[in-house]
Design a protein around this nucleic acid. Structure first.
Lengths: 180, 180
DNA sequence: CGAGGTCGTTCCGTATACAGAACGTTCTGT
DNA sequence: ACAGAACGTTCTGTATACGGAACGACCTCG
């Protein structure tokens, strides 16, 4: 069928991922809920402005509505979902950037990673308590935490879902690849 | 102005890159040339079907028409090259992740960004001196710096090229939806 | 049991995006 | 000079995307 079906389905996915009701999205975006209802079921041919209002209210770029999500490494635990968005490697270390969501009211304990592993967290929204299992730090929106990940550490969202960026850095110990 | 201007400009660019006349594109896409004319000058709010017909006739994916300028942003200064790799937006803030390189021996001064802007830097390799212009911090591989970016700040690589991740967070001052 | 609050869908009047015609301009070639 | 054809713009009637009202279904109260 047409492209309208795909876009409608994609918009519904984005909305449900964020656990928003159709009425709530209508309120936030300023788009009539009848419009959204018919749009999601592929019965409409939305205008650019309508798409823009919706994706903005959903906190997504316009292109998110038009393209299926790209397949990416995904790590899901009892409390944390993490999606790899970037990976950098040089002679001494690998650095991975994850987009993570910590579910409200949950705690995830992570076993020790390889020696020398470090993690940084930058919070996008919500307040979380993360870091070394024996001395976690509380961090709010825009804040940052840093801890050694070669010992047990925790992720906790005591009061509402938390969105964040997690930067994990693993040193490379293999001497065969060292630069001179 | 609106998103329609940007999309119109982008469509004109795509058409000119292919050395197609407006009339020829109208013929191939089945869209009226009056429609295309007004669309390219930002006087229209195109529907999804219209955009799809045009981008298909141009041999481009739908997203090519509406990639926001920031999605391709490459910021080059006298000492710093930055490539946007990720962008996240919610109701209260926009967060952008840049891969940056600071060239050896150089200094870049950055003017103040909008009020409330913050920056985080995680160093991948090299040692840099960054942050508030009056009190920069020295950071090595795996290290982190954080500063308010709504005042003048600097990036410096005193001893060799520096690779890093820069996280920029802009608060949205008006969470209410904008007028079209 | 009803009253009042959600939810998503279907309908309707109006604003507007559309196709196509008509227009002025700038090239050709004769 | 004149055709004839292309170009991009402006205009006009019609199809349709829009907001909002009305609807039935589903809650949780008292």
């Amino acid at each position: 069928m047409g492209v309208a079906d795909q876009v409608g389905r994609r918009l519904r996915e984005l909305r449900l991922e964020r656990e928003l009701s159709l009425s709530e999205l209508a309120r936030r975006s300023g788009i009539g809920k009848g419009t959204i209802s018919e749009l999601e079921s592929g019965q409409r041919n939305p205008t650019l402005e309508t798409l823009y209002a919706l994706t903005t209210a959903l906190g997504a770029p316009l292109s998110a509505a038009l393209e299926p999500p790209t397949a990416r490494a995904r790590i899901s635990g009892s409390a944390v979902d993490a999606v790899l968005t970037e990976r950098f490697q040089d002679a001494t270390a690998v650095t991975e950037v994850f987009r993570v969501r910590i579910r409200a009211g949950t705690v995830q304990e992570s076993a020790a990673h390889p020696p020398g592993t470090e993690e940084h967290l930058v919070v996008l929204s919500g307040t979380t308590c993360v870091g070394n299992a024996s001395a976690p730090q509380e961090v709010g929106p825009g804040g940052h935490a840093h801890w050694a990940a070669d010992v047990p550490h925790v992720y906790r969202a005591p009061s509402g879902d938390v969105e964040a960026l997690l930067v994990v850095r693993y040193p490379l110990t293999d001497p065969a690849h060292r630069e001179g």
